[in-house]
């Protein structure tokens, strides 16, 4: 039995494609959890990163937060949150947000810090106000790096959302956890393949977004 045999068995089994326990439903749950976590993380990290980067204050504090957050094991944090908060979505969101905040925060800060001062000065010279400078000059220039931070966070969140299944939530991790309990390696491998596939799709999506959203003038520079 090769690995690929298990994988194709999983995807050929019709039963895996229907109902609340089927692939489409689990995939939706997985995407839903990931988007919520990413949204919360971006809601926290983008403004903080923009402000600290814009003013240039708090860089060392950010470094400390980043290192500390990376040192926390997501699965461990999840189990701990389950003990403290019980079942539900919140104990899952806390480790996922903790995972996603540092990359977004750090890259946003870094993007704002490393802006070329010349276009900013030019914009001011043209009579743009601070808000116009931020939204029309600084943000578009910072976008490539900010997007790379978001991408990094998104990939990690999509991969890690699998642990939600260990505290009885859904998502693609369900296949892996159930399969391990039921001694059904086909389901385990099938679920794992789906998670990896979703992570790769995430990379592709960010690549596409980068193509369309980033201003050509900025893109050429790198």
């Amino acid at each position: 039995m090769s690995l690929f045999q298990f994988i194709s068995d999983f995807f050929r089994d019709n039963a895996n494609w229907h109902g609340a326990y089927g692939i489409p439903h689990r995939l939706l749950e997985h995407v839903e959890y990931s988007l919520i976590a990413l949204g919360i993380a971006a809601g926290i990290a983008l403004p903080v990163g923009l402000v600290t980067g814009h003013t240039g204050r708090g860089g060392n504090a950010l470094a400390l937060v980043a290192t500390a957050a990376r040192a926390l094991p997501s699965y461990g944090l999840l189990v701990l949150m389950f003990f403290w908060l019980g079942l539900g979505l919140t104990p899952v969101m806390i480790p996922l947000v903790a995972l996603a905040v540092p990359p977004i925060l750090v890259t946003t800060y870094e993007a704002m810090r490393t802006l070329d001062p010349a276009p900013v000065d030019a914009a001011r010279g043209m009579g743009m106000g601070p808000a116009a400078v931020l939204f029309q000059v600084e943000l578009p220039s910072a976008l490539p790096l900010v997007l790379s931070g978001l991408r990094s966070a998104a990939i990690q969140v999509v991969s890690t959302t699998a642990i939600a299944a260990t505290v009885s939530l859904g998502g693609l991790g369900r296949f892996v956890v159930d399969g391990l309990y039921q001694q059904n390696y086909t389901i385990v491998v099938g679920g794992a393949t789906l998670i990896a596939g979703l992570a790769l799709v995430t990379i592709a999506l960010f690549w596409l977004v980068g193509r369309f959203v980033v201003s050509p003038g900025v893109r050429g520079r790198r």
């Binding site: 990359p103 790379s148 991408r151």
Partner: peptide
Amino acid sequence: AGRAARATAVEPSTEAALLED
């Protein structure tokens, strides 16, 4: 040093970009 420390929060290719900067 501060830049390197902040870079530790980021995945490799992003970090490569940062280091390139």
